[in-house]
Design a binder for these strands. Structure first.
Lengths: 218, 218
DNA sequence: GCAAAAGTGTTAATGATACACCCATGT
DNA sequence: ACATGGGTGTATCATTAACACTTTTGC
């Protein structure tokens, strides 16, 4: 009972907001089991690493930056997670902002790709369930903590932000009230610049001012 | 890298609301390290168990009931959690209501005891940090999910409930507004009975009606 | 009848919702 | 000048916050 050993892995959920859409990074599985499926990146945890250290190393395989704060989520321990052995998976969620994001150039689209969350391919293992949980965490985090600023650290437009939230919470938000609220509560400020290259009137660019964040959306 | 093995334990956080106070179950450590300290119950996880199964077995050592739903919280992996080896600890939170609670009679006060959270003894390992995280989770859960009904499934008084929330969120709540809100939103109903044996006017007893729950407190 | 704690209503302020027209750009 | 999408203001409604006196019990 005392020296029972388990295999543990971290499961990395990297999310990005792209044009008001939510995307997740998946890699292509080249071997059985689940050959041809896509999956979240995973990595076995050594006894000399914390979960966060392990996942940060894993992250460096995919991004040019390792400055992505990771948020631990649920730990999955179902006996049939893997076909053969029991592997405990700890899910860690990272938010990649649109400025920092750079997929490692050594990786081809065949190997690793951003997928829109609303339109995922067949997923290996229990990764579909893991992503589901991560989405719940993102909703929670955007409401209560400052996760939104991690998606949009700077230079976002209000329509962009609005569409992102509408998608994440599957709801509709009134443009005028949304803008009014963010400005009245002095959460954001204009950068002075405007978006370019879109159709119609160009949108002003904003950034968040402080760390207080939206209390309720959706 | 593939067959790296880790030791995993569950860490059981049992909470109870008692007279509007929040209490946690601790056991007394009889051996080094941390001899004489108190700690949360823990149990090594076998490869044949899920975390929840393991913690449910652990729970049966302390309570006469095993009908306590467990809520998984954070997983702790710091390298120095234990003095000698690295043990990953998964924290699980259970809420014991005032009706179901029965400490296993084989246990003396020397072995296992409920402690008020505001007044804890010296804690072994990182259990102080673990309890801290659990409290955050309880706050969250009481706000958004129906965790409050798990603390008070039935026959509570409104002052009792109010004091519990005031303690948990470290805030003050107006009696009249609190009562009005719960009744207006039709969350609770009178049982018809009244509290007995207290000083002053006896309080009416209530129970929750449905599963919708308070949205915002504190 | 006195102390202790529970129960009750009204008003003011604040925040949320609903809604329609004008403005800046590219073609 | 027209199509596209972004920016703006006001009135109403709902929710929250503030506040003091009366009622029921035990002693």
């Amino acid at each position: 009972m005392k020296n029972q050993s388990n295999q543990i892995e971290t499961v990395l959920n990297l999310f990005m907001a792209h044009d008001g859409r939510l995307e997740v990074l998946l890699i292509h599985k080249e071997e059985e089991p689940y050959k041809g499926y896509w999956m979240l990146p995973t990595s076995s945890v050594l006894t000399s690493q914390t979960l966060e250290e392990n996942a940060t190393l894993l992250l460096k395989n995919f991004l040019s930056s390792d400055q992505v704060p990771l948020h631990q989520n649920h730990t999955f321990s179902a006996l049939d997670r893997y076909p053969d052995e029991r592997v405990i998976g700890v899910s860690l969620v990272g938010i990649v902002d649109t400025i920092t994001w750079q997929l490692n150039e050594a990786l081809s689209d065949q190997e690793a790709k951003w997928f829109e969350v609303a339109n995922l391919p067949k997923l290996a293992y229990d990764h579909s369930e893991i992503i589901e949980k991560s989405l719940e965490m993102l909703q929670m985090g955007v409401k209560t903590q400052a996760l939104l600023t991690q998606f949009y650290p700077a230079d976002f437009t209000l329509p962009e932000l609005q569409h992102f939230l509408e998608m994440l919470f599957d709801c509709e938000i009134d443009r005028r009230n949304f803008r009014k609220r963010l400005l009245n509560e002095e959460l954001i400020e204009e950068t002075g610049d405007k978006e370019k290259g879109q159709m119609g009137r160009p949108a002003k660019l904003y950034r968040f001012k402080e760390n207080k964040m939206l209390q309720e959306i959706g």
